[in-house]
Design a protein around this nucleic acid. Structure first.
Lengths: 95, 95
DNA sequence: ATAAATAAGTTTACAATATAAACCAAATTA
DNA sequence: TAATTTGGTTTATATTGTAAACTTATTTAT
């Protein structure tokens, strides 16, 4: 009947992060922060969770002299997102 | 950019309850329990929250001698659900 | 008749989660 | 060189979700 919803994706902020990365493929921490309106702390924690799950990967580079945290989706992340959307359908579609 | 997701609806079990009531218009506690696979306790709590929010209303009747808890959607509930689905789009649609 | 089992929930205690405040380090600006 | 800004991380707290324990009434079995 109802397909289970991946708890890692069923979170407003994490879903927003994933959504950004689905279209952008690559995004910097401050950009994600701005687009989602999240606090840096919250964002940092949620990025960690997505990273631990293998849904995104984080590359710490530099932009000139300033540190630059780059996030991008992994193939698993993309698949998990697609599955999540598919699962959501079972809740949203009128039977 | 991203529309906020009503925290009351952004919960797997509560969303499932609402989803059932959208199509069924009226459902008994045990039926919802069976369809969602939730424990009675959890279901009771979540039904309470939806009731407090005015999203559903609960009528306690009898079926023969046994108590019978009937749930149905309120107009506000229906509207909230529709708005939630609309908000979700901002996360799911590829930009 | 009465004991055991089932039905229909509710209460409550605990676990998991989310979030912002506090903190840290480096770089820039005054 | 002191203050401010940038770019985060850690951590303490508040919120939320969940199942176990409990309650009350009803069948069913003995």
């Amino acid at each position: 009947m109802f397909q289970p919803l991946d708890p890692l994706l069923h979170s407003e902020l994490r879903l927003a992060i994933m959504s950004l990365l689905i279209s952008a493929d690559e995004a910097e921490f401050p950009y994600i922060k701005e687009q989602t309106g999240a606090t840096a702390g919250n964002l940092s924690v949620q990025i960690d969770k997505l990273t631990t799950a293998g849904y995104i990967e984080v590359e710490k580079t530099f932009k000139g002299r300033r540190p630059c945290t780059l996030c991008r989706l992994t193939p698993q992340g993309r698949q998990a997102f697609e599955q999540y959307v598919e699962a959501l359908r079972s809740y949203l579609e009128v039977k």
